[in-house]
Simulated scan of single mutants.
Amino acid sequence: MRARKGRGAVSNASGRFEPCARVAVDDGWPADDDAPPPRIATEVTMETVRTVISHNASPDLPFDRSINPYRGCEHGCVYCYARPSHAYLGLSPGLDFESRLFAKPGASEALARELSKPGYRVRPIMVGANTDPYQPIEGRLEVTRGILRVLDAFSHPVMITTKSDRIVRDLDLLGAMARRGLVSVAISLTTLGPTLARTLEPRAPTPSKRLTAIERLSAAGVPLVVLAAPMIPCVNDHELERILKAARDAGAVGAGYAMLRLPLELKDIFTEWLDAHVPGKTRHVLSLLRQSRKGALYDPSFATRMRGAGPHADLLAQRFAVSCRRLGLSRGMPTVAALRGDLFAVPPRKGDQLSLF
């Protein structure tokens, strides 16, 4: 199978819940091997939501609640751990994940209702835990911006993860929230090489644009963390130190990293990508991943799923720690305690009775 221009996944295999599977076969008819695969248009479906805050109890995550403005992601990052979630929609974690998207245009209204409930308890909300809140369709739908407006109005702490420079559009909100200690941002930077980026994450902004976004956010006083993630053995892990230095020089004050995770259908999707783009490395890359995942391509254990275990994973962890010390970067995402929750207040609504005191 051949890769499509502008898409990360090579195929569109059925998800694990589908009763029938799509399998490509040679039917014996002559094929034009030089013809590029047909382009796939992006489709966006609008979802009606009653609630938008999702909760988790994972010990690996520095937050217990999150909001995802979109399902699926047009950035098309082939390594995205969120791809298998598209199977719950009856769609493929392959090309469907990056071309058949779902947006939540009523998310801001639903969020305001949830935050206004009498029993609500404040904890920082992560925006973009699963798919990127600043993917291309955000430019016209502005679902993420609507969510930030609500969080700003309620003085609610928020953490944002993205790999898009589109986030600088919201500097007016982010700068004001940063001055009150309400926001931190993590920018994902997988590689500094534009050629590798075009195949790994074909519709994401270039590495240079992300570094510029770090500069602009940092200049506005927004606390910035760079995420060198995922680190892929023999593909981009040799860039770890250069990524951290470039981000520090641009204004990042902290850093995190993660080793590539390949849950469920992602194993086959990523293997197809290796065969299509770096075929000479396929066996070696997968071998090093197995050595770091207890002999399997994926180990879901909480203690090691983000970093892996074994000689290769341990060396990567040591390199990260040494680089952070040398560059003066704090390690990991900002802690929940770093953001203020004491400013939270439900804003008055039109028609509310005013207090006498």
Score class of each variant (00 low, 15 high):
residue 307 R to M: 14
residue 303 A to V: 13
residue 235 V to M: 08
residue 301 S to L: 12
residue 264 L to W: 13
residue 256 G to Q: 09
residue 306 M to D: 06
residue 310 G to C: 13
residue 312 H to V: 13
residue 312 H to C: 05
residue 223 P to V: 10
residue 270 F to P: 00
residue 235 V to L: 11
residue 269 I to E: 00
residue 267 K to P: 00
residue 233 P to K: 05
residue 271 T to H: 05
residue 287 S to H: 10
residue 267 K to H: 12
residue 306 M to N: 05
residue 229 A to D: 14
residue 318 Q to N: 11
residue 227 L to K: 04
residue 305 R to T: 10
residue 263 P to Y: 05
residue 196 L to W: 15
residue 308 G to Y: 02
residue 223 P to Y: 09
residue 298 Y to K: 07
residue 264 L to P: 04
residue 253 V to M: 10
residue 249 D to Q: 03
residue 249 D to C: 01
residue 257 Y to M: 15
residue 319 R to E: 01
residue 208 S to E: 15
residue 266 L to N: 06
residue 192 L to A: 10
residue 299 D to P: 07
residue 219 A to S: 14
residue 280 G to W: 13
residue 252 A to S: 08
residue 240 L to N: 04
residue 245 K to D: 14
residue 298 Y to G: 01
residue 314 D to V: 10
residue 266 L to H: 00
residue 255 A to T: 04
residue 279 P to H: 02
residue 249 D to K: 02
residue 302 F to M: 09
residue 309 A to P: 09
residue 219 A to R: 09
residue 301 S to A: 15
residue 196 L to F: 15
residue 254 G to S: 14
residue 215 E to H: 04
residue 228 A to I: 11
residue 236 N to G: 10
residue 234 C to A: 14
residue 288 L to S: 06
residue 296 A to C: 12
residue 214 I to G: 08
residue 291 Q to G: 13
residue 226 V to Y: 01
residue 302 F to I: 03
residue 283 R to T: 11
residue 212 T to F: 11
residue 237 D to I: 05
residue 235 V to S: 09
residue 270 F to A: 00
residue 221 G to L: 04
residue 243 I to Y: 04
residue 312 H to Q: 08
residue 225 V to I: 13
residue 233 P to G: 06
residue 304 T to A: 09
residue 320 F to W: 07
residue 282 T to A: 12
residue 223 P to G: 00
residue 195 T to L: 15
residue 275 D to A: 14
residue 295 G to A: 03
residue 269 I to M: 00
residue 236 N to L: 12
residue 252 A to F: 05
residue 318 Q to T: 12
residue 254 G to A: 15
residue 274 L to K: 15
residue 225 V to C: 15
residue 265 E to Y: 01
residue 193 G to T: 08
residue 243 I to M: 07
residue 208 S to P: 06
residue 286 L to Q: 09
residue 313 A to N: 06
residue 268 D to P: 00
residue 217 L to I: 01
residue 261 R to P: 00
residue 250 A to H: 02
